[in-house]
Amino acid sequence: MGRFVVRRLLHAIPVLLATTFLIYALVFVLPGDPIQGLAGDRPVPPSVLAELHRRYHLDDPLVVQYAKYLGGLFTGDFGTTFRGQPVGDVIAQRWQVTVRLGLTAWFFEVVLGIALGVWAGLRKGRWADHLILGATTVVIAVPVYIVGYLAQLVLGVRLGWFPVSGGEAGWPAAYVLPGLVLASFGLAYVARLTRASLVENLRADYVRTADAKGLSRLRVVIGHTLRNSLIPVVTFLGVELGSLMAGAIVTEYIFNLPGIGQQVFQSIQLREGPTVVGITTALVLVFVLANLAVDLLYGLLDPRIRHD
């Protein structure tokens, strides 16, 4: 187990390096001078331009710039934005919003997704099952921003239940609607996965045994069947935790939430290399760690899987 963790972490290092370098190189080849871009149409004095280029290592070749950036990263320095604010502070400040949004969405996926899946699985072939299957297929197919607009239009504007956009109302009021929208795809997927897995396991011999020895339906379903049925669901939910943070860009854009996705989108337009790479590194790190956690959890849930 320990060796497996170490090996997985070692595997993550080249992935992180390559991903950040890729993003860094792409930001580097963006056309135009970023300092001049900040000044707009006004000409920047050559001495100021030269000083700023020196400070942000803009004249170095790509590899040298990247090496200097990495060196800073190892000492906990994420670099500074072109406005002089430490990128670490920007990430810390924006991260709260994204983590709140991601966890709210994840909560909906876990609770609603599994509940709907169990309901459909137990009512297999009846109208509740058909309804849930049909609805989840539609939700999976409709792009998330259309779901977002519909939610804004119906629940936000017409019914007035939730704030339409912005984060001023704070958690939870401002996060329920975006959280539901962000969760919609995963929620539908979790429901279908739970249903399929539950239906398959309800036919297993051990369930028939549990039924035959007179256990209540509740104990058979929750204690015996669901436990085994949730293995693929847990895998998906673990991976989802990472991709929800990264996938929040569109949701934050629609609901105007000042999270990390909105920040990275703005920074890409402003060509702020350090911010883009810093946030990407953080997101990829979360993604890789979530995948690792899933692999480890898998072994705990299913004793047949051993890591050695």
């Binding site: 991903t19 792409l26 930001v27 080849v29 990407t280 890789v288």
Partner: peptide, 22 residues
Amino acid sequence: SRATEVAFGLPFVLGATVILVA
């Protein structure tokens, strides 16, 4: 396999936005 992991680890919207803006 490492290359696959890199491509897999890159979030879709983020990666596409960076490349397309470049």
